[in-house]
Amino acid sequence: MDTNKILIVEDDVVFCKLLTRFLTKNNFEVLDAQAGKSALNLIENNSFGIAILDYRLPDMNGIDILKKIKSQGSTTKVVLMTRYGDEGIANKAVEEGADAFVSKPINPTELLEVIRGL
């Protein structure tokens, strides 16, 4: 598994590309998806060290993707992004095996600290 390879799943294209550029500059290989289906395709065809999943996606939610990653016996670390105030979702994510969660709006530097702490 490539621990330096990160999957970002975020339906806000501008924010997604901003995170992709930021993490690439910090020496990570980043693939991104704007919907759950395309994320699942990437997961099937790649090995990721970390997956950063938005909870709210157009076709499914981040916990659905988290369950898929964990059901494959993957050692991928999962960070779930939720809107500020979604503590119930964060608790459910941890129950399903998420390694960390961050609240939006996200400061990329803080996200980098979370990633390095995994």
Rank of each mutant, 00 (worst) to 15 (best):
I50F: 09
A35K: 09
G88N: 13
L57R: 07
K104F: 01
K5Y: 00
T82L: 06
K77F: 07
A35I: 04
V14C: 03
S38F: 03
L40I: 15
L18G: 00
I8G: 01
T109V: 15
K70E: 10
S47P: 01
T24V: 05
M81P: 03
F48R: 12
A90G: 07
P58T: 11
A98P: 05
I69Y: 10
E96L: 15
K17I: 11
A35F: 03
Q72S: 15
I63K: 11
G97K: 10
I89P: 01
V13N: 10
Q34E: 14
S71C: 09
K104V: 01
V30W: 06
L31C: 00
L18K: 01
N4Y: 04
A98Y: 00
I69L: 07
V30A: 04
F101K: 05
K68P: 07
K68N: 15
I63H: 13
L118M: 12
D59R: 05
A93S: 00
G62M: 02
I52S: 02
L42N: 12
V79F: 07
A93K: 00
F28I: 06
N61Y: 04
L31W: 00
M1V: 12
S71P: 07
G85C: 07
E87D: 12
T75H: 05
N61W: 02
Y84D: 05
A93R: 00
F28P: 13
I6T: 10
T3F: 03
K17T: 08
M60I: 08
N46E: 05
